[in-house]
């Protein structure tokens, strides 16, 4: 059977686009969950904002992440396909099982698993990646803690009654959400397209554009339900603290986009929630949350790595 040339060239991208779509559906809630769940911002506004700004973030600042993931070792286009597929399957399976999952941690695990089987693995960037993962919730917590104190006197100074407050919350959540979407695209596009840029299936620009669009389309087509479900968890915060959490998450994720390490937006949100909890004297950290984060760091890459290794082993056998 003869495949058309375009399918041979661009077919491997399909698993990456699917991974981007899945990432968009899940992570959209971390930037616009509160605003949509409380109906402050209509879902369509949130979805379109993510589509535009995640794409913009990916195209303008997504390249550093491509380089980091590329340092784990060279790969062919179809190896990239299997790696992205392994990560996507891990994310889908764990979401189905109700286990905490991070696309960033899944793709790194898959790259390592496949690289080990193919004999192309270079573990030198792993230290930087792991430190970034651990720093994400801690950093977001510290930023949320500081933001809470910085914004409070400003708001109290300018607060002018009910309608002023309404405007502040609306614009605050919209701007924080837009910044969050930009950071999401800039940071997480490497998860989606990093392996394909590394395998030279697409140019970095095209990878960033397609990756950003796939994340945005995931949010726009299937993000509503997740936003409403995940958003409710954050809704228990006051609108002000929710705003601080989203901003802290966006700043943290943006920082790691510049550093060039894809991190988990969900873990950044958890860190932010814990940070504002410290200010308000509320203990929002429980053992379950800690277990979920640690599982994200260890369990997700392990499962994705084993799956990718198994798939790669079978593929190599079949050749």
């Amino acid at each position: 059977m003869k495949f058309p040339a375009w399918l041979k060239s661009y077919g491997p991208l399909s698993s990456g686009l699917y991974l981007g779509w899945a990432l968009g559906t899940n992570d959209a809630a971390n930037v616009f969950g509160t605003a949509v769940a409380t109906r402050v911002i209509p879902f369509l506004w949130a979805g379109v904002s993510i589509l535009i700004f995640a794409t913009l973030g990916a195209v303008l600042e997504g390249y550093a992440g491509f380089q980091t993931l590329g340092r784990f070792g060279a790969m062919t286009p179809w190896q990239a396909f299997w790696i992205a597929l392994s990560a996507a399957l891990t994310v889908t399976l764990m979401t189905y099982l109700g286990l905490p999952v991070s696309t960033s941690q899944a793709i790194v695990g898959a790259i390592i698993g496949a690289g080990a089987v193919n004999g192309t693995l270079d573990l030198s960037p792993l230290g930087k990646v792991v430190i970034s993962w651990i720093s994400t919730p801690i950093g977001a917590g510290a930023i949320a803690f500081l933001l809470y104190f910085i914004l409070k006197p400003l708001i109290l100074k300018f607060s002018r009654g009910l309608f002023w407050w309404d405007n502040f919350i609306f614009w605050g959540l919209l701007i924080a959400g837009i910044y969050g979407a930009y950071s999401l695209g800039a940071n997480n596009v490497a998860n989606v397209m990093g392996v394909f840029v590394n395998a030279k299936v697409v140019s970095p620009f095209m990878g960033a554009l397609l990756g950003g669009l796939s994340i945005g389309l995931g949010a726009l087509t299937y993000g509503k339900k997740v936003m409403e479900t995940v958003g409710e968890g954050i809704v228990r915060l006051s609108p002000y603290t929710a705003l601080v959490v989203v901003l802290a998450e966006a700043i943290t994720v943006h920082f790691f986009a510049v550093v060039g390490v894809p991190v988990s937006t969900s873990q950044a949100v958890v860190g932010g929630v814990i940070g504002v909890g410290f200010v308000e004297g509320v203990n929002r950290i429980d053992q379950q949350t800690v277990k979920k984060i640690i599982f994200g760091w260890i369990g997700t890459p392990t499962i994705a790595g084993l799956l990718a290794a198994l798939i790669m082993f079978v593929v190599n056998l079949a050749r």
Binding site: T38, R39, V40, L162, F163
Partner: peptide, 9 residues
């Protein structure tokens, strides 16, 4: 009801 205030408000 017809204003563009936030739902909670």
């Amino acid at each position: 009801m017809h204003s563009r205030l936030l739902p909670e408000t």
